[in-house]
């Protein structure tokens, strides 16, 4: 991911705020791919990712006057995208945010039951490529674990940057990342070929 120099970032913001069409287009072109990819990794669905990414870019442009530059534009945009993703899944059957926080505070390692999919595994290998399998399994992770895993292991953000995006303490981030990896590894181990050298 190409990071913007501070000066370049400020120039772009200034021109966008002045309503320059070229600047708006540059802003969208610059961020659409990372934002769309983050949205896709989080939700696992292209159509939904398109909606989330579009909303994130629009909200970013609309709220640009309030951007204080405390974080980079990327971090800020990723925060907006993640929030929109959480909003979009609110009310789904997943563990609620409160439940997740409670379990983390308790420090207990909750085992999450894996569905019995052995019979379909081989067929899956035949018809999907590795990328699809990995994405499919990521999409099954509990939301808050998935978010941290996507940001750290796929998008390559540091702990500190993820703290900025998710507004959570570093301990929470690390614990979520470890749990996410454990669950994902357990799921991926069904596909033995993935782990062959």
């Amino acid at each position: 991911m190409k990071k913007l120099e501070k000066e370049e970032e400020q120039r772009l913001i200034k021109n966008c705020l002045a309503g320059e069409r070229d600047a708006l287009e540059e802003f969208i072109r610059l961020f659409q791919k990372p934002v769309f990819n983050l949205a896709y990794r989080l939700c696992g669905d292209r159509d939904m990712a398109e909606d989330i990414a579009q909303e994130a870019l629009l909200r970013a442009l609309e709220n640009l006057p309030r951007f204080k530059g405390e974080s980079s534009l990327y971090t800020w945009l990723y925060r907006i995208t993640t929030n929109i993703f959480y909003d979009s899944i609110r009310g789904s059957k997943e563990l609620s945010y409160d439940q997740m926080s409670y379990n983390e505070d308790e420090g207990e390692t909750k085992s999450i039951e894996l569905p019995d999919e052995e019979s379909s595994v081989e067929k899956d290998m035949e018809r999907r490529d590795i990328q699809e399998i990995v994405q499919k399994e990521i999409a099954k992770l509990p939301t808050h674990y998935r978010t941290v895993l996507v940001l750290y292991d796929i998008e390559g953000f540091s702990y500190e940057e993820i703290c900025g995006i998710l507004q959570k303490p570093i301990g929470t981030i690390k614990s979520r990342l470890n749990r996410a990896r454990k669950i994902l590894k357990a799921r991926l181990e069904k596909y033995r070929e993935l782990f062959e050298d």
Partner: peptide, 10 residues
């Protein structure tokens, strides 16, 4: 595997 996931185009 995770870090080699290919970015997708909008």
């Amino acid at each position: 595997l995770l870090s080699s996931l290919k970015p997708i185009e909008p």
